[in-house]
Computed example of a mutant assay.
Amino acid sequence: MAARSDRPDHGGLIVPRTSRLARRAASLLALLVVAVVLAAWLTARPGDPGLYPPAPGAETVTVRLVAGAWHSGLLLPRSDLARAAAEAGDGALVEVTERFGAYPALEIGWGDAGFYRAVPTIDALDWRLALRALFTPGGRPAVLHVVGVAAEPEAAFPGAGIVSLPLSRAGFGRLVAALGRSFALRDGHPAILGPGLYGPSLFYEARGRFSLLNVCNHWSAGLLHEAGLPVTPLLDTLPRGLALDLAWRAGGPRPHAP
Results as ranks from 00 to 15, higher is better:
residue 4 R to C: 09
residue 7 R to A: 14
residue 9 D to N: 15
residue 10 H to M: 14
residue 10 H to L: 15
residue 10 H to R: 15
residue 12 G to N: 14
residue 14 I to G: 15
residue 16 P to A: 08
residue 17 R to P: 02
residue 18 T to H: 10
residue 20 R to P: 01
residue 20 R to H: 05
residue 24 R to I: 05
residue 27 S to K: 04
residue 39 A to P: 02
residue 40 A to L: 08
residue 45 R to N: 09
residue 46 P to E: 10
residue 48 D to A: 13
residue 48 D to L: 08
residue 49 P to K: 07
residue 49 P to N: 11
residue 53 P to V: 10
residue 55 A to D: 11
residue 56 P to G: 11
residue 59 E to W: 04
residue 60 T to P: 07
residue 62 T to V: 14
residue 62 T to W: 07
residue 63 V to L: 04
residue 64 R to K: 06
residue 65 L to P: 05
residue 66 V to I: 12
residue 66 V to A: 04
residue 69 A to S: 15
residue 72 S to K: 06
residue 73 G to E: 09
residue 76 L to Y: 01
residue 79 S to V: 08
residue 81 L to H: 03
residue 81 L to Y: 03
residue 84 A to Q: 09
residue 84 A to G: 05
residue 84 A to M: 08
residue 86 A to I: 07
residue 88 A to F: 08
residue 92 A to Y: 03
residue 94 V to T: 13
residue 96 V to Y: 01
residue 96 V to K: 03
residue 98 E to A: 15
residue 102 A to H: 11
residue 106 L to S: 02
residue 107 E to G: 05
residue 117 R to D: 05
residue 119 V to L: 10
residue 120 P to F: 12
residue 121 T to F: 14
residue 124 A to E: 15
residue 125 L to M: 15
residue 128 R to L: 12
residue 128 R to P: 05
residue 136 T to E: 14
residue 140 R to D: 02
residue 141 P to S: 03
residue 144 L to F: 03
residue 147 V to H: 07
residue 148 G to K: 04
residue 152 E to I: 02
residue 152 E to C: 03
residue 155 A to T: 11
residue 156 A to I: 00
residue 160 A to V: 01
residue 170 A to I: 00
residue 172 F to A: 01
residue 174 R to T: 00
residue 180 G to Q: 01
residue 181 R to P: 00
residue 182 S to E: 04
residue 184 A to P: 00
residue 185 L to C: 06
residue 186 R to C: 05
residue 188 G to Q: 12
residue 190 P to N: 06
residue 190 P to L: 01
residue 190 P to R: 03
residue 191 A to P: 00
residue 192 I to D: 13
residue 200 P to N: 13
residue 200 P to I: 09
residue 202 L to G: 05
residue 203 F to E: 01
residue 205 E to P: 00
residue 206 A to C: 05
residue 209 R to D: 09
residue 210 F to A: 00
residue 211 S to G: 14
residue 212 L to M: 15
residue 217 N to V: 04
residue 218 H to T: 08
residue 221 A to I: 07
residue 222 G to L: 05
residue 226 E to V: 03
residue 226 E to S: 14
residue 226 E to F: 02
residue 228 G to C: 06
residue 229 L to Q: 04
residue 230 P to A: 05
residue 235 L to N: 09
residue 236 D to K: 08
residue 240 R to I: 15
residue 241 G to C: 11
residue 245 D to W: 06
residue 246 L to C: 06
residue 247 A to I: 07
residue 249 R to V: 04
residue 255 P to S: 09
residue 255 P to Y: 01
residue 256 H to D: 06
residue 256 H to L: 06
residue 256 H to P: 00
residue 258 P to W: 04
